[in-house]
Each structure stands twice: as structure tokens, then as C-alpha cells.
Amino acid sequence: MRVAFTLNGRPVEVEGQGDERLLDLLRRHFRLTGTKEGCGEGECGACTVLMDGAAVLSCLTPLVQLDGRELFTVEGLEATTRGSQFLERFAAGGGTQCGACTPGIVLSAARYLSETPVVDRNGIRRALAGNICRCTGYEAIVKAIEAEGGRKDRVQLALHPSDPELTEERES
């Protein structure tokens, strides 16, 4: 079957099996290997991407559900100035160690930070409840997101192709 959707702000069309996992589509077809497979059964959150602004597990999302959606991956986050600066700060503060959880964690975090004017520890914990990290003990992750929440130039998701920040990036 054929589906059309936007991927990191760019309209795309793919032909494939209806039950193909979004995770495989991203990694194999689009070569966007930032999205990771951890468990492959909806438990770990490593494969988290944003669909119409909501965090979804790409290992459990079949191609048949993608038509007309807006998808956003960690590559989309990195393509924006604020996104890549957030990633730098997140890593510098020890928010990542092995990195397997990181693409999912930073997307959940970026979504939370974009939607929440005043961030706090409990809100961060709720926003990240679906993302398992085995390495960091979460402390450095929470601290990085708390610190980001205190910045005027904190990360903002640019989900739509018309978002000036994303468009600007792509044209340059």
C-alpha cells in the first residue's frame, strides 16, 4: 500500500506492506538510524518518535497508520538550532551514557519542554515515564531538563513545515 505523510517537515510517500513497522521504515528506508530499537515490544521507549506531536513507539506503529500524519524524529530535532544546542547541553551534563535511550528521551523531553511553561521534577518524571534508561540513573537527565526549562532560549519543537526555524535550517 501507499502512504503519504510528512517526515521532519518534509512531505514523503512510501510504498510498503501495511504491517511494516515505522521503526524499520525509518531506519532502513529513510536511513534515519537515530531512532533505536531496544526491546521491540513496546516496553523501553528507545524507539520513541513524535506523531502529530504525541510521543509514540515506532516499534508498535505499522505503516498503515501513517497516512496524513506528521512525524518527527531525533534527526528533525537536531536539524534545528535550538534542538542541536539542547542536545549539546544534554550530553555535556551527563544526560547520556551508552546513548541507546537518548533519541527517545530527548524527544519526550523536547515535547515536554515545548508544552510546559514552568517545568518541575514531577512533570519531568511523568513526561519520561515511558523511556527506560539503564545507564544514568535518570538523575543527570532530570537535571538537564530542569536546567533547560530555566533558559529563555530553551528547545522548542518545530513540528510543522511552516515553522520558520525549521524552514530556515533546511534552506541554509
Binding site: 551527563g94 540513573g137 535518570y138 543527570a140
Partner: peptide, 10 residues
């Protein structure tokens, strides 16, 4: 940073 990360993660 990594040393602290080891202690927190462990």
C-alpha cells in the same frame, strides 16, 4: 561528569 554518571547509574 562520567564518574558521577557511573555512581548515579550504578
Amino acid at each position: 561528569v562520567q564518574c558521577r554518571g557511573q555512581v548515579e547509574g550504578g
